[in-house]
């Protein structure tokens, strides 16, 4: 069910502030696309517009088109809630629901969408936890609070929770920045597994991580503080890291940035 995403002439504003300027890019199904760039360049902002999460910030506004398999997710008749059901998201900080057990965390999305069938929920729970490489570690404590797991386990629990609703696309906003190196490795392995089924877009500060996990990399930059961020270039990860077209990209990647 993985889907393709096209951004056409996307501009993002927060009130009067022009945050991101004129982004055009295509994310192909069953691949990993990484967004890299300095702080404030708008890469997380672009990610959040892909499932309309930026609408939670008062005054945020998007111009242009974002197409999911050709369907504009900003169409008048499109509901943000429905968009998010199709495009899941994993956040920087692991954030399991504190009042819920491991099991209830995983199936929270389904339950709140009205699925009551206990057998079905148990199946989805196991399948999602297996898919998140977490089943073996938690299968004996499914009824314990999700907050009791380690940070890395919590993040994988959040990934399981995101894929339990069977999204077509998975967005990850710096999913490893709060984790230790070993947990980071586990998540990176997981991303490699998940791309056989999902379209994945990941924002990362870590260039090695982008090089390791992604097929395609987009570099965002901004000319100065207060100026809008923009997409400098997007290409195969190998090309970006070995032979980028733009000088700015090369400077950033080789650490000569700023």
């Amino acid at each position: 069910m993985a889907k393709r995403i096209d951004l056409k002439d996307v501009d993002i504003y927060y009130g009067a502030f022009h945050a991101v300027q004129n982004v055009n890019l295509t994310v192909t199904p069953r691949s990993v696309t990484a967004f890299i760039g300095p702080s404030g360049c708008g890469k997380s902002t672009v990610l959040r517009t892909l499932n309309r999460m930026h609408e939670e910030i008062a005054g945020a506004r998007v111009d242009g088109e974002i197409l999911l398999d050709g369907e504009n997710i900003y169409d008048r008749n499109t509901d943000a809630v429905a968009v998010r059901r199709t495009i899941g998201m994993v956040f920087q900080m692991p954030n399991p629901f504190p009042t819920m057990s491991v099991r209830d965390n995983v199936v929270a999305g389904l339950k709140l969408q009205g699925v009551r069938d206990r057998k079905k929920l148990d199946e989805v729970c196991e399948a999602s936890l297996r898919a998140a490489n977490l089943w073996k570690e938690v299968k004996d404590r499914l009824d314990k609070p999700g907050g009791g797991l380690s940070g890395g386990q919590q993040q994988r629990l959040c990934i399981a929770r995101a894929i339990a609703v069977e999204p077509d696309v998975l967005l990850m906003d710096e999913p490893c920045s709060a984790l230790d190196p070993i947990s980071t490795l586990a998540i990176e392995d997981l991303i490699a597994d998940l791309k056989t089924e999902y379209t994945i877009v990941i924002v990362t500060h870590n260039m090695q991580q982008a090089a390791r996990v992604s097929d395609q990399t987009g570099f965002f930059n901004l000319e100065a503080t207060g100026k809008p961020g923009h997409l400098v270039e997007i290409d195969d990860t190998e090309k970006i890291f070995s032979n980028p077209t733009q000088q700015a990209t090369e400077d950033y990647i080789s650490g000569r940035f700023g």
């Binding site: 999911l68 369907e71 997710i73 008749n77 499109t78 509901d79 809630v81 429905a82 968009v83 059901r85 199709t86 969408q113 009205g114 699925v115 069938d117 079905k120 069977e166």
Partner: peptide, 10 residues
């Protein structure tokens, strides 16, 4: 399981 909504319609 309720049928998923068609596409992203409301």
């Amino acid at each position: 399981v309720p049928a998923p909504p068609p596409g992203t319609r409301r």
